[in-house]
Amino acid sequence: MNNEYVLSERSESGLRELKRKYERLILMVCRSVLKSPEDAEECANDALLAVWESIERDYPENLTAYVCKITRRKALNRLRYNTAPMRSSELLTELDECLPSTKYSPESMFESTELTAALNDWLGTLSEKQRVLFMRRYFFSESIKDAARECRMTVTAATTALSRLRGSLKKYLSERGFNYEN
């Protein structure tokens, strides 16, 4: 069964197929963000359901990316709920050096078109290896160790590469008017 089937078949079999195809990926994202296995599992179920409920409305072209985005958002929301003060986790702190935000409101969270465009442009300047490493770490929230393994790098090399990538992103964003706000 293909994605077309998943998207078109609003039945139990469509949901089953969605689960079969994406459960592993969804769980990976949830487990990477949330340290608690129970939280991750619960979040994965929520994410799967959210995908299923919104799929008909959005009818995404790229189902994998769509699933990833929804899952990541669910997981990050759960992480923020679990951790106080907000963004206290190591993962959410790393990218602060690129563009720390002092505002967290629903508006700021969703009014990020320009920043997203800049991010897309910047990602487009990277090699595939760099891009995958960055995304594995900061989109999929994998540990450096796991991201390094995915990219077939040592942890040391991945750490160095990520540091350089953050520096590159910071410079890129700064040049385009994204900057610190004190």
Binding site: T64, A65, T102, E111, L115, L123, V132, F140, G177
Partner: peptide, 25 residues
């Protein structure tokens, strides 16, 4: 000066970059 959450912005990056990284898994 623009301020936005880079974490949230990341969630909206181009699908192709997400797929690319997901495939690496």
């Amino acid at each position: 000066m623009k301020t936005n959450s880079i974490y949230e912005a990341l969630n909206n990056v181009d699908d192709k970059f997400i797929s690319e990284a997901a495939k690496a898994h």
